[in-house]
Design a protein around this nucleic acid. Structure first.
Lengths: 241, 241
DNA sequence: TAAATAGTGTCTTTTAGACACTATCGC
DNA sequence: GCGATAGTGTCTAAAAGACACTATTTA
């Protein structure tokens, strides 16, 4: 509240305080589909189920910094596109105690995602199921890469659903569409990312026109290598259009 | 963090916990301009400056419920369009102690706004200054209704700026544009609200077409009264298009 | 009938989708 | 030259802006 007449009414030290945590929705692109990084719970509650990586916010640490620290400590990732998503604050979301959790959305480039999986064996890559195609939100269905359904602990399915909606919503007015691409990329790759996020197919000429007209990207003059056909030009994202 | 192997590493009871508060950005429309409700701080820090109404989240209370309670207790408002905005979590945002604040955006219809001002004398209506027109965000300039600049306490100018950007961003894909209107309204009133939020003027025929094509509103067959010229038809918002 | 605003018809401009076509690479 | 994909030209459809025009009410 940070407001003095309220402090008069309620001395904060006289009230029990909630714990505050950060939960990370870490999304990458695997085989053309959005994929989340999860950790398996070893103990109750929700033992054996999967959860978002998370951790406590320390008393001398900004919430944003806690998110970065947990990204590093829990997922072994040095840096990623990280942004605050929403704060989940219902009373009983953790059955043990009052925990308010600030959720963050992190987008991992392909190499980042792969090395996190390799370097931290407790992590699992999970595909995002049907309601990805849905509109309204609500909990999301998640499945392991071999197709088995996974059950997420706590309200984490709801958090994941919100992450996905945010991603879609921000796709065409922010730089989130570039987070899953290497520094230099082809327009085809960019279109693949957009199609994966939106879950639809897009018109090629229209997509090119829009992307080039926005002025967010510029050609490098270089071309992709390794293709057994005509190589496409490589583009790069011009920071801060 | 609601994740057991983390609980093993860090016993939450062993760590000092932050206080969690809610701050409300309560916006109404006064004389065609967006206007915020502020309270004057009586004590240090920031004594004499203006702040957003706020209060502590109780240990047995959902954050959303805290926002509703503070809306009622601090502003005397029974109900309003209230949605979570963002969580401000830097370490030194309150110089006295560690406070993490979850900001909410509330939109008040004209009568609600007026009766809040009347019923709670400590509240002030403040106009929103220049950077309202800006694009990027950053702190916002605020002025009293007679044009004098006001200085907001803490990071509240930043919170207010974010509220404004959120409002603009959600205007054409959500129902926020109706929150400032009575149940029955004319298309001219609706356009005025949109123009106030966007800070631009809009094309009348195009605006009508878009609104009617969306299917969110329906005519009532009634007409406005009290006009000294041709009265306009009254429309109503069809909940949940 | 004058004043003032509600509400509409239509032309132009812009933007998006469809689709076919040309260009260029490795083999 | 063949296969395959990059990249473009152009037609069409849909949406948005501009602007003038008609309609309706009060005074």
């Amino acid at each position: 509240m940070t407001e003095t007449d309220f402090l008069d009414d309620y001395d904060p030290t006289a009230f029990e305080r909630p714990s505050v945590t950060v939960d990370l929705v870490l999304l990458g692109l695997r085989q053309g589909s959005p994929t989340a990084l999860l950790v398996k719970r070893q103990q109750n509650p929700f033992a054996g189920q999967w959860a978002l990586p998370g951790g406590f916010v320390r008393i001398d640490e900004a919430v944003d910094d806690a998110a970065k620290r947990i990204l590093h400590d829990k997922a072994g990732i040095q840096s990623a596109h990280l942004e605050q998503l929403y704060t989940f604050g219902s009373v009983k979301r953790d059955p043990r105690m009052r925990i308010i959790s600030v959720a963050y959305l992190g987008l991992l480039a392909e190499d980042s995602f792969a090395s996190a999986l390799k370097g931290t064996p407790s992590l699992l890559a999970a595909g995002i199921g049907v309601p990805w195609t849905g509109e309204k939100g609500g909990p999301v269905e998640v499945q392991s890469l071999d197709g088995k359904p996974l059950f997420l602990a706590f309200d984490h399915a709801e958090i994941l659903a919100m992450a996905i909606l945010r991603l879609r919503g921000k796709l065409d007015y922010s730089d989130v569409g570039f987070a899953w691409l290497p520094e230099n990329f082809t327009l085809r790759q960019l279109q693949d990312v957009h199609e994966a996020i939106l879950g639809t197919s897009l018109n090629k000429p229209a997509f090119r026109r829009r992307m080039l007209d926005k002025g967010w990207i510029e050609g490098t003059g270089e071309r992709e290598t390794g293709a057994s056909f005509r190589p496409a030009e490589l583009y790069r994202f011009k920071c801060q259009h």
